[in-house]
């Protein structure tokens, strides 16, 4: 399944200079793993060692805050778009 991850320009260095990348996975966790293999260190930018969302970011699946969903186990489907923004922008 192809899932699109989108970040604002200020975070595009996370994806080698791109604001949008495609990854594979059936859950957010699998997508993060796939992206971490392509962009080493990505996992630690968005999740801490306990598997909690890093306090510096907010993650949205089709506009919905991942903190209100099921974390890394949250299912995704083909064509879903995941947006990541700096946490401080959410106020």
């Amino acid at each position: 399944m192809s899932i699109s991850f989108i970040v604002p320009g200020s975070l595009k260095d996370w994806f080698g200079g791109s604001e949008q990348v495609i990854c594979e996975g059936k859950t957010i966790g699998e997508c993060i793993d796939d992206l971490d293999s392509k962009f080493p260190g990505f996992r630690h930018r968005v999740f801490d060692e306990k598997g909690e969302i890093n306090s510096s970011v907010m993650i949205f699946i089709d506009g919905q805050n991942l903190r209100l969903l099921n974390g890394l186990a949250t299912s995704v489907k083909d064509g879903d778009e995941v947006s990541i923004i700096p946490f401080a922008a959410g106020g």
Binding site: I6, G90, G91
Partner: peptide, 22 residues
Amino acid sequence: VKIKAWVSEWETMEMWKPGGGA
């Protein structure tokens, strides 16, 4: 617009109250 991020007023209040993430 490409970034799709919905933040509710309630979430914003939770973020900015003492002990909140922000």
